[in-house]
């Protein structure tokens, strides 16, 4: 049971972080389908720090530096979306899709090149971080508390305050609802949208780092992040673009995702003898059902996906 809660919380943290990222981007008016690619890059940044930090680095250093790296790399990668969607008015779905493909391909090429440079026989796309990963975990009586759970909670509170209680957040939302109106009162729509996309890059990057450290201590970058970016988008839609609801949704999805890791530990589930592929499918099926039930009255930001053009009315 503790194992289930542990997995549920860590997967929920991933989904929460990435969905909050999507939430900021969409509130500013840019659809971010490329979260999956951003996650891969954030994960890569964090994994590189964990791999190259000396063995004797303190836990706090490992945690701080890997999170910083993941945030920074995620933000840099999200610039690809920002430039394309905001300045060049490209099709946001297409650019996001390209970013997802590019994320996995570029990370694979990079890691393979790095591995072969170290050892010519090593052509894998795997990075190991066994010792560094221990820094994130505190064992509390069998329950492996992960600092990322706390981080997700803190970032949730910050996001909520930022979106609803600050001038910045309200302006950001105005740009996603009615950019022309926002512009008319002197808000710079372009820079607000940049801020939204960059925050989504920051949160998505950390989300990627959390994902690759959840339960495993090496990551094969050829696999990307297995559709987690999209699950996070489903969480965001189910959460109606509101941070607190997103957190609830993330917990629910985290529960279903963790079942596939731990179902063999439950007697009654193991006795049902359901093939493991059903558990693997479960989060995706649930999200489809949930979306079908909740999307008909959607509270999506009204101007999302539409490039802002100063000249148009």
């Amino acid at each position: 049971m503790t194992l289930l809660i542990q997995y549920m919380l860590i997967f929920a943290s991933v989904l929460l972080l990435v969905a909050l990222g999507g939430c900021f981007s969409e509130h500013s008016g840019v659809i971010n389908i490329g979260l999956e690619g951003i996650m891969v890059f954030g994960a890569l940044g964090g994994a590189l720090v964990m791999k190259y930090l000396p063995e004797n680095a303190s836990a706090a250093t490992v945690i701080f530096l890997s999170i910083m790296a993941a945030m920074l790399v995620g933000m840099l990668y999200s610039l690809l979306l920002a430039v394309a969607a905001i300045n060049l008015k490209a099709d946001q779905t297409l650019v996001g899709t390209a970013m997802n493909l590019l994320g996995t391909a570029a990370a694979t090429v990079f890691v393979k090149a790095m591995n072969t440079a170290e050892n010519p026989d090593n052509v894998s796309s795997t990075i190991q971080y066994i010792s560094a990963k221990k820094a994130f975990i505190v064992d509390i009586g069998g329950f492996e508390f992960n600092w990322f759970m706390l981080l997700a909670l803190i970032l949730l509170v910050i996001s909520w305050v930022l979106l609803y209680k600050t001038k910045f957040g309200l302006r950001l939302q105005a740009c996603g609802e009615h950019p022309q109106a926002a512009d008319s009162v002197g808000i710079n729509v372009y820079s607000m949208r940049y801020a939204g996309v960059l925050i989504s890059g920051l949160l998505g990057g950390v989300g990627g780092l959390v994902y690759i450290t959840a339960g495993v201590s090496e990551w094969k970058f050829e696999n990307g992040v297995a559709g987690f970016g999209f699950l996070a988008l489903a969480v965001m839609i189910f959460g109606q673009w509101k941070p607190i609801r997103i957190a609830m949704a993330a917990l629910l999805f985290g529960l279903f995702r963790s079942l596939s890791n731990v179902y063999t530990g439950f007697d009654f589930l193991a006795r049902l003898n359901i093939p493991s592929s059903v558990y693997n499918m479960l989060p995706y099926i649930i999200s489809l059902v949930v979306l079908a039930l909740t999307s008909s009255k959607s509270h999506a930001p009204k101007a999302e996906g539409i490039p802002y053009d100063k000249g148009s009315r």
Binding site: A234, I237, A292
Partner: peptide, 11 residues
């Protein structure tokens, strides 16, 4: 049900 075809497609 107004579900975005990109999300449902991925799922």
């Amino acid at each position: 049900r107004n579900v975005n075809e990109v999300i449902s497609g991925i799922m």
